[in-house]
Write a protein that binds this DNA or RNA. Structure first.
Lengths: 221, 221
DNA sequence: TAGGATCCTGAACATGCGTTCAGTCGAGTC
DNA sequence: GACTCGACTGAACGCATGTTCAGGATCCTA
């Protein structure tokens, strides 16, 4: 009715997309179009009118999420781990839904989840390379495998912790900070001092992969 | 189709439960009763007749899964990590669906997922305590937090890797072994040599939080 | 002022879900 | 033989989902 509201109305399409982002982040990707439409204050049919289908809506969410990530990475930098990008993202209240959405996307897997995941892997790639070059991170015998494992572990732990939360937290940023606080000590401890006391297992593995593997012990037919 | 099938028929109820276990493991907990009933060669109504509801069917799956785990743990021995119990379980072809089901249960979260998760945490508790006592594992400043983090990371990484797989692998045991092979080097490397080169971040954290978190009953530093 | 495109809605449709129910079949019991 | 009881099924119900469609409302343009 006013110019202010009509400015909101001009972004009706993006209002739906934002509502979808929020709902997806809060309740997972299974939420119905009707719930999203209600949140946005429109009819379910309008959602389809603008995005064609629920999949089209997901496309728009993906595009927006990746755009935000790209923008944020252009400004801020140097987190301490592959999962810290999300924490930083969520700490900006405006971007919290984007962080939540990306988490749900990875959690639900599939090609879209994989795309989001690879995004974080390549982010970690850059960050680890810088750390190794600066001398703060040890080099790895297989850098690519280590980065993938670090991302898998950091993200996976976070996603599992979130999934186990019941009911799902309403304030994602606060939850992420609490989670980070809980894992900081063990993670730092393990990553600076290690977990194993000696090199026997590592050396055994290294000699195992360098020599032709003789496999008859653990195999069960 | 007399005595042989009637022997199968005597376990009609368990045949449904096994089909459910397999289906749940393969396609996630979202699969419908009709699909399970078809797999078991019965009508959907019979599933409800035996288990009351889909939730009752899940109860039966949980009970059976935990029973198998208890039995396997009684026989087999010390794995090398919190996620290796599942790998060992799946390596026995007969128990692979159980392992897959437990993974899906944790993935889907909620109270039931949490129950499964806590099962693995307490398993890791015992295993880590033995390792520390034997001198193969370093003690932690907060043992409870470390065990939780280790389980969260190991399981989370595995579940995320599985979720990203598209389409979901049909042979879970083979997939788990391939996955283990991929992460063995970086995990062993990080856990014996560490990832960070110096103690600055850890020391900074330790001085930041004055002393280890509240619960230190078991911490005998 | 008229025409047309765009935004938007209410009511439906098709589908799949978990679940219910009336009733059939077959074996064991009096 | 009649009766009972559990296993079992086919057909339906109620509900929620994504989607479609005819048409109303609004605004821009000619």
């Amino acid at each position: 009715m006013r110019s202010v509201e009509s400015r909101d109305d001009a972004t009706a399409r993006s209002r739906i997309r934002d509502a979808a982002l929020r709902r997806f982040a809060a309740d997972g990707l299974g939420v119905g179009i009707r719930a999203i439409a209600t949140d946005a204050g429109v009819s379910p049919a309008l959602v389809l009118h603008h995005f064609g289908s629920k999949d089209g809506l997901r496309d728009a969410c993906d595009d927006h999420a990746f755009a935000v990530i790209r923008e944020v990475k252009r400004v801020a930098l140097g987190p301490t781990g592959p999962d810290q990008l999300l924490v930083q993202l969520a700490s900006v209240a405006e971007y919290a839904p984007v962080a939540g959405y990306l988490m749900r996307a990875m959690q639900s897997g599939g090609p879209r989840g994989r795309e989001a995941f690879e995004h974080f892997v390549s982010d970690a790639e850059q960050y680890v390379a810088e750390g190794v070059a600066a001398g703060t991170l040890r080099p790895s015998r297989d850098e690519k495998a280590r980065i993938r494992w670090l991302t898998l572990s950091g993200m996976g732990a976070m996603l599992l912790a979130l999934a186990l939360e019941d009911p799902p937290p309403d304030d994602l940023a606060a939850w992420l900070q609490r989670y980070t606080a809980e894992i900081s000590l063990p993670a730092l401890e393990a990553f600076t001092e290690g977990v194993l006391t000696d090199r026997r297992m590592l050396d055994a593995y290294l000699s195992y992969v360098s020599d032709p593997p003789a496999r008859d012990e653990t195999a069960a037919s």
